[in-house]
């Protein structure tokens, strides 16, 4: 106590830094050269990765004569939204010239049910695995996690045979089932880990209160699962929307998702290659995941962290 008082009334004896100011109050912040270097590097890296986006946007706003001049980086002299309208409504895939819009609605029809069904199944899976351990539960969970590492290409052929034998190959329910199955390992892992981190006493209290399997799930667990459900939705929506392989194989011609249609538009070999329309179509297809990335910011980071095992 007395020692503290002595130093308090004798600040002259304090160690002084180069500026001659005795340390007092908040520590002053210095801008070091290293820090400036880091920011310069980050800005340059960001600009570098934004270049393709910039080129896509300016090209999509130019007319074909302007594109032929070859000035890749110049801003459009006469901005036009015609390529966007063409991409959405009139771009041709083979003989059909309906643009991307049918693909957009197909993607919606595939993504929405797949996301809902897979999340419902995975949350129940995770809940049961965590709180109602049954014989072989750990083995099942191990198999599920293993499933996350199975390359898709390996199972395509058996899946085609299986689905066609029950008449679901190349149908909307078929592609929804495929997406649900392939979402199961990672989503179950996500939900199980989330529930395992909750205090088990919560579950015990609910059992003493007389609640059963479903009552505990719907009244206690589900209302607490909002954060992890948001993460799961982000993962699934972006994953299923961006899917090309399953879409082209399992959806069937009439249900082809946007990604497949985009590929067909861009790769159409007849006539003039309309770069502006292709660019607009690509941006339109990427718009949904992009919007989700931007809107869901911090949730998305969690989703990436959670999905890190998937690689």
């Amino acid at each position: 106590m007395t020692a503290a008082q002595i130093t308090a009334i004798q600040p002259v004896q304090d160690a002084q830094d180069q500026t001659g100011v005795a340390p007092f109050g908040p520590k002053p912040r210095h801008v070091s050269p290293g820090r400036i270097g880091i920011y310069v590097f980050l800005v340059i890296a960001a600009l570098f990765f934004l270049i393709p986006v910039y080129i896509m946007i300016v090209t999509s706003l130019k007319g074909m004569p302007e594109i032929r001049l070859g000035h890749l980086f110049s801003l459009p002299a006469e901005p036009t939204f015609q390529p966007w309208a063409d991409a959405w409504l009139h771009a041709c895939t083979g003989r059909d010239c309906n643009g991307l819009s049918p693909g957009f609605y197909n993607s919606l029809k595939i993504t929405v049910p797949s996301v809902i069904i897979s999340i419902i199944c995975a949350s129940i899976n995770g809940y049961a695995l965590t709180f109602w351990p049954y014989k072989g539960a750990n083995l099942l969970f191990g198999l599920l996690v293993f499933g996350a590492f199975v390359p898709y290409q390996v199972v395509i052929y058996p899946l085609i045979i299986g689905l066609s034998s029950v008449g679901l190959f190349a149908t909307l329910p078929g592609i929804i089932i495929v997406h649900t199955i392939f979402g199961m390992p990672i989503l179950t892992l996500l939900f199980r880990n989330f529930y395992a981190a909750l205090p088990v006493e919560l579950f015990k209290a609910a059992r003493v209160d007389g609640a059963g399997f479903w009552r505990i799930f719907f009244s206690i667990m589900l209302p607490m699962s909002v954060p992890i459900t948001v993460v799961a939705i982000i993962l699934q929506v972006t994953g299923i929307w961006n899917d090309f392989l399953f879409g082209i194989v399992f959806a069937g011609r009439s249900n082809w998702p946007m990604t497949v249609q985009l590929n067909n538009i861009v790769n159409t070999t007849t006539g003039v290659r309309e770069y502006n329309v292709n660019m607009a179509a690509t941006i339109l297809t990427a718009a949904v995941p992009l919007i989700i990335y931007f809107v869901s910011g911090r949730w998305f980071v969690r989703g990436i962290a959670a999905g890190a095992v998937k690689g």
């Binding site: 006493e201 919560l202 209290a205 059992r207 003493v208 209302p223 607490m224």
Partner: peptide, 30 residues
Amino acid sequence: EEPKDRGIGMVFQSYALYPQMTVEKNLSFG
């Protein structure tokens, strides 16, 4: 017997209150 049929009430170390329910709803859940 199931816990609810044993005529017991239990109090836990971590309280184990249902976080998304009000106190009244917590009390009335059972």
